[in-house]
Simulated scan of single mutants.
Amino acid sequence: MDGSPERSLERVAVEDEQGGLFLLEALKPETVDRKVSIAAALEALSLAGVKSLAPYLPHEPGRHILSLKDGHYQLSPYIEGSPLPRPEYLDQAWRGRAMAGFLVKLRRAWNKAGLTPEASDDFSLQDFVPDLVRKISARDPQLLKRISPALSLAEDFLPVLKDLPLGFCHGDFHPVNVIWGEESIRAVIDWEFCGMRPEMYDVALMIGCAGIEHPPAVSWNYVGAFLIELWKSGIYQKQSWENLFPLMLLIRFAWLSEWLRKQEEAMISLEIDYLNFLAKHAEDISSLFDSVQQSL
């Protein structure tokens, strides 16, 4: 099944009497309130016109979580997809255009639905990065030295966050969280981190995820087509475009935290190398992003 199984206690595909397939999830009790907010946000986005979703099904109007004596459950459509060809997708422009198209629809639906910060997980990079640095400094000073080139640049970038325009974002927007059709997006899944962010948060995260798979891919067809479509849409403010690279770099610290939490040594080393690669090539990558705007 697509998505992250760790986000629930258990997931199983079920079939109804008419042959319809659904995904039944047993929820961790501590996540129920958050799941209620996510379900409401997805319902509002769906009603506002975003079709590439798998919104949770209500068991009665406005109620998407079924709480029984033995636990809490939610149900969503089971959507079949095509495998993501990796790393071939990194040079497929149509996937970049599809990802951009989804963000355009999300932005316009958010404006129409009037989603509020109540749907947010209250995550803030401006608070998160310094807190992570303090924890690393106390627990593993050597690791702090290993990321010093990127950290120095990140500390310079942090102040720009407070002035960036905000928007409602998926929060974990990358192609593995997409159920792909043969030539389109069938659904975007795993909305656990959705909420109010700097408006280009999803953009920066997606490009960063392409780059960690293969750093030169930030200049390939997938990312290029993605950025061109977004620039043409006009949905983001100039200030956000000007700070796309700083946002991309800062988001990688959240990924480093994830690898540290899971104690995945190989990914920790890879993320450190990638952070320092981004720091070393900051001007080149920023110029690449600027060239997209100048070419249109």
Rank of each mutant, 00 (worst) to 15 (best):
M200N: 00
S219A: 13
I212A: 06
E265F: 08
L247S: 03
P215T: 08
G195E: 03
C209H: 13
E283S: 10
E213Q: 14
L230R: 00
I272E: 05
A225F: 06
I212E: 07
M196T: 09
M200I: 08
Y201P: 00
E271K: 11
K262R: 15
A282E: 12
E213H: 10
F277A: 05
I272Y: 07
Q239K: 14
F277L: 14
A217Q: 05
L247H: 03
Y236E: 00
A225H: 07
F226Q: 01
N243D: 01
V218Y: 12
Y201H: 07
I235Y: 06
H281I: 05
P246I: 03
W231P: 02
F245I: 03
P246L: 02
A266E: 14
I235P: 00
D202K: 02
D273E: 13
I251K: 06
P246R: 02
L205V: 11
A266D: 12
A279R: 06
W255E: 06
Q237L: 09
E258W: 15
A254F: 14
G211W: 02
V218F: 12
P216S: 10
A279N: 04
A282S: 13
S286D: 09
W241R: 03
P215V: 07
F226A: 01
D284M: 14
P215I: 05
L270S: 13
F245L: 09
P216V: 07
Q237S: 07
G234H: 03
N221R: 15
Y222F: 15
